[in-house]
């Protein structure tokens, strides 16, 4: 990634590679289902409806296959001395820095697929809704460690609203 989004501490903690695997799996299954539907429609009903559906399915699967590992690599976070910094996104890049004292609470969320793959989304909340600092694909243990650590830092440095 370009110089613009370099880490203030020098390096980024990457998120789990399984995030990409999980996304590829979901993308390929969705694409596969569409492809199957397309084939069935082509064979049994009308080819002019079935072929486009099948093509959409293939395109979705291919795109997710290409996108998932790149997006996974774009995510990173780092614990600076006084603030927590998150970056992410390939097309629309974003870097958010949250001072520890401003953190109101930290959410750890994991859907069924994420649980299966052993990762979770960690979201940092401040009094501003625009902060929206969410990190997908953090391994469960790391996510819990991060939550405890951030909550602790937030309590000790709490500047309130």
């Amino acid at each position: 990634m370009s110089d613009l989004f370099t880490s203030p501490t020098g390096d980024w903690t990457a998120v789990s590679p399984r995030l990409a695997t999980a996304r590829r799996l979901i993308g390929v299954s969705c694409g596969g289902v569409l492809l199957l539907v397309g084939i069935v429609v082509t064979v049994l009903l009308w080819w002019w409806l079935g072929v486009p559906i099948a093509i959409v399915g293939i395109v979705i699967a291919a795109w997710v296959w290409w996108w998932a590992p790149r997006n996974r690599r774009s995510w990173g976070y780092t614990e600076g001395p006084e603030d927590f910094v998150v970056r992410g996104g390939i097309m629309f890049r974003r870097l958010v820095a949250v001072p520890y004292g401003r953190m109101q609470f930290v959410d750890v969320e994991a859907g069924p697929v994420a649980r299966q793959f052993g990762f979770a989304t960690v979201t940092l909340h401040t009094a501003s809704t625009k902060t929206a600092a969410g990190i997908p694909g953090v391994p469960i243990d790391e996510a819990n460690r991060l939550r405890n650590r951030l909550t602790e830092l937030g309590d000790s440095g709490g500047a309130g609203v």
Binding site: S2, L4, F5, M91, F92, R93, R94, L95, V96, A97, V98, P99, R102, T126, A127, S128, T129, K130, T131, A133, A159, V161
Partner: peptide
């Protein structure tokens, strides 16, 4: 400054083309 909740830097594809970026200073809604 002492009320800043967080700071963000954003860049979309068109902004990358023009070599510009957006900075946000976050406050409560």
């Amino acid at each position: 400054h002492h009320k800043t909740q967080s700071v963000a830097l954003r860049q979309g594809p068109l902004q990358r083309w023009r070599k510009v970026a957006t900075i946000e200073v976050h406050t409560p809604p």
